[in-house]
Amino acid sequence: MIDRSSGAPAWLDQLSRPELAPVSEVERMLAARRIAQARDEGRIVVPQAEARLSRAAAARTRAQLTASVSGVPDVAVPPPLLVLSRVAIALWVVATVAQVIVWLMIGLFSGDLDEWWWIWTPIGGLPVAAALYWTFEWNHAAGSRVDLGKGASE
């Protein structure tokens, strides 16, 4: 479940903080497979694998799921990508809100709201924000890919 303590709309929370997005059963299964592979290859010990598997099964957000597999290669999104995504989306939202406020103030004092010059920031920023978000999503999915045809105990 997405933490709504920030007061932001759910879509904005998920866009700006994708690590708080809910995880699916498939993502939990992929994480469990990754942990089982690490256990079978001897990269983690059995008690540690059991603890990680229980945390993965109980995970509700991507952050919790990532914490359960931390230390297992190719699972976590590189921090620079996550930071870049957050900064770009925050700048886009702040710039758009600031421009709308200035536009409204100009309209209030001049009585004229005819020109919608501020619209170019959301239109131009949307593809950038979407590209960063989908890059994050793609990277997250690519880091979790395993052969689903094999069982976790193999």
Rank of each mutant, 00 (worst) to 15 (best):
A141Y: 05
S70W: 00
M105N: 09
P78V: 07
G124P: 00
A98F: 15
W11N: 00
A32D: 04
S24H: 10
V45S: 11
E50S: 08
W118H: 06
I101H: 03
Y133W: 06
E19N: 10
L126Y: 12
E25D: 04
A88T: 11
D40C: 15
G143C: 04
L53T: 11
G107D: 10
Q37S: 12
V69T: 08
D40N: 14
I89W: 01
S110P: 04
I44T: 07
W117L: 04
F109R: 01
A76Y: 09
P80C: 07
V97M: 05
L15F: 05
G143K: 03
V87F: 13
S110Q: 09
V100Q: 02
W116H: 12
G107C: 03
T121I: 08
S16Q: 08
V93P: 05
V100R: 02
D13N: 15
T135K: 01
R52V: 07
A56C: 13
A51K: 11
E137I: 02
V23Q: 02
A56T: 14
A95L: 10
W138A: 13
L91I: 09
G42M: 11
T96E: 03
R17W: 12
G111T: 13
T61E: 14
V75T: 09
I35Y: 02
V69Q: 01
G143W: 04
A32V: 06
D74W: 13
P122I: 04
F136N: 03
L15W: 02
A58R: 15
L91S: 07
F136A: 00
R86Y: 10
A90K: 05
V93S: 10
Y133M: 06
P79F: 02
A59T: 06
G111A: 15
D40A: 07
P78H: 08
V46G: 06
L82Y: 08
I44R: 01
R28G: 13
W118F: 15
P80F: 06
Q99T: 12
R145T: 07
A129F: 09
V77Y: 03
Q48V: 13
W92Y: 01
W92I: 08
Q99A: 14
D74V: 03
R17L: 11
I119Q: 09
